[in-house]
């Protein structure tokens, strides 16, 4: 990473620490904000956050690897999480999943080479009555069918916008 980038990131982390606090309880909110801005929590971030909160980097690492929504590896701008739990399964999630695989050319757990889409499984997202359901970033889509997959992907950018500043402001308000 370039020094200027590092400086900028450091500045952002300092700001987040001001907003969320210096205690350990601020750790997860800080990481969530970084995750939504950068689609990953980098090595550098973990060490700076650890330093600011006076904990060990390995503790940050332990937390990041515990929660599904925090990742050390880079995620795409659009993270698509398909619910795989029973009700959505019975409602036909396999067909939707297959279409997503084909249209994106990646398997679950992977990110497209242009860094735009990441495909993941989700455990029950609370839309069991309207399955198959999936999340695209923070947005929920229900009654998804294989035919709709193409339109959803095409509309991603237009409808939802990249998962950055706008949703941040909501977070930090």
């Amino acid at each position: 990473m370039l020094t200027t980038q590092q400086d900028r990131l450091m500045g952002e982390i300092n700001e987040l620490v001001e907003v969320h606090g210096h205690d350990r309880s601020a750790l997860i909110p800080i990481l969530q904000d970084i995750q939504s801005r950068y689609h990953a929590i980098s090595d550098f971030t973990m060490q700076v956050v650890a330093d600011r909160l006076e904990i060990h980097p390995v503790e940050v690492f332990g937390v990041v690897t515990f929660y599904s929504f925090l990742n050390e590896k880079h995620h795409g701008h659009f993270v698509i999480r398909v619910c795989r739990t029973i009700s959505c399964d019975m409602a036909g999630k396999d067909a939707v999943a297959q279409q997503l695989r084909s249209d994106l050319g990646i398997d679950f757990g992977e990110t497209t080479s242009d860094g735009r889409f990441t495909l993941e499984w989700a455990n029950c997202i609370g839309m069991c009555d309207q399955g198959p359901a999936m999340l695209v970033n923070d947005h929920v889509l229900t009654h998804v069918t294989p035919e709709r997959v193409h339109d959803i992907l095409a509309a991603c950018e237009k409808t939802f916008g990249p998962h950055t500043p706008q949703s941040d402001e909501e977070h930090t308000l």
Partner: peptide, 10 residues
């Protein structure tokens, strides 16, 4: 209080 090891993953 060295903090080298921690549980990772779940």
């Amino acid at each position: 209080e060295v903090g080298v090891l921690e549980a990772a993953g779940r």
